[in-house]
Design a binder for these strands. Structure first.
Length: 271
DNA sequence: CAACGGACCTGCCTGC
DNA sequence: TGCAGGCAGGTCCGTT
């Protein structure tokens, strides 16, 4: 479920309970995530203080007073804040117990997520080393997208979903951003002008920023990783709307598969 | 190097 | 009601 806005919302949700707190204990019930949780992770994190929590791409980066953690939500991961008495349910794979009180509980039915312990700076972990531009930071420009795109020949939708180019654009927001930018998802990335790339960079930024703003309606105990309530259905212009009228021109929205992923677009507005 | 397809998992929905 | 099949918002890895 989580794309970048969901990850950002998750971080804002758990930060108040994590930052500045000391991890008293980690309780792990299922180690088989995308990569198995290290057998000594409990002993590594016990007694460590959380000094900060941020994000790189869709990875959640937890900085401890010594070392850190890297968490990914995969397709179905979520955190919630629960009372220590609350029984874990199916797929609640691990808990972080802190001296602040509530338990930070991770759930992930599909187990595509991960929990990695780092001896050193988690921000320098090798998993993060090949990630591309952050779409909400200053270096993210149409000019850079254009330059990188010249040597490639994939559809633009595939291109913007490539995390070595730009991070955080998942399947939903790829379709949405291309609609806002008026670019066909199948157009080859090497056949797009700088001007249109400028438009695209702005569109990606706006779509992601808007979603993050809408993620603010969070229940106290549930840190919005489920994606159901809120903006999900409401604000999408094309995703999941095949056959329905385009909001701009009323032409029916089309869907097709690009690189094994469902893609939605308006054939009239997007060229 | 770039592109592509398969792999990892469970849950939920559809249609027979 | 049961079951098979398809689909889901992410990434990594091996092969071409």
């Amino acid at each position: 479920m989580p794309e970048l806005p969901e990850v950002a919302t998750t971080i804002s949700g758990i930060r108040p309970y994590l930052e500045g707190a000391v991890i008293v204990r980690a309780e792990i019930r299922e180690r088989r995530l995308r990569w198995p949780i290290a057998s000594d992770l409990e002993q590594r994190v016990a007694g460590r203080k959380v000094v900060g929590i941020n994000r790189r791409g869709k990875y959640i980066v937890v900085h401890l007073d010594r070392g850190g953690l890297l968490v990914h939500l995969g397709m179905s991961g979520s955190f919630r804040i629960v009372d220590p008495q609350t029984r874990p349910e199916k797929h609640d794979h691990f808990d972080l117990l802190t001296d602040a009180g509530p338990v930070i509980r991770y759930r992930d039915p599909r187990r595509f997520g991960c929990l990695i312990h780092c001896e050193g700076d988690p921000g320098s972990h090798e998993r993060l080393s090949r990630l591309g531009m952050e779409p909400l930071e200053d270096g993210f420009t149409g000019a850079r997208l254009y330059r990188l795109g010249r040597t490639r020949n994939v559809p633009i939708k595939t291109y913007i979903m490539d995390s070595s180019v730009v991070v955080g654009v998942g399947n939903i927001y790829a379709s949405e951003s291309l609609f806002v930018a008026g670019i066909s998802p199948v157009r080859r990335c090497s056949r797009i002008s700088i001007a249109r790339y400028d438009m695209l960079a702005l569109s990606i930024r706006r779509v992601l920023t808007d979603s993050i703003a809408k993620g603010g309606t969070t229940l106290q105990d549930f840190v919005r990783a489920d994606g159901r309530p809120g903006y999900f259905d409401q604000e999408l212009s094309v995703y999941g709307r095949a056959g329905e009228p385009c909001l701009a021109c009323s032409h029916p929205i089309k869907s097709r598969i690009i690189a094994q992923r469902a893609t939605y677009y308006c054939p009239q507005c997007q060229t």
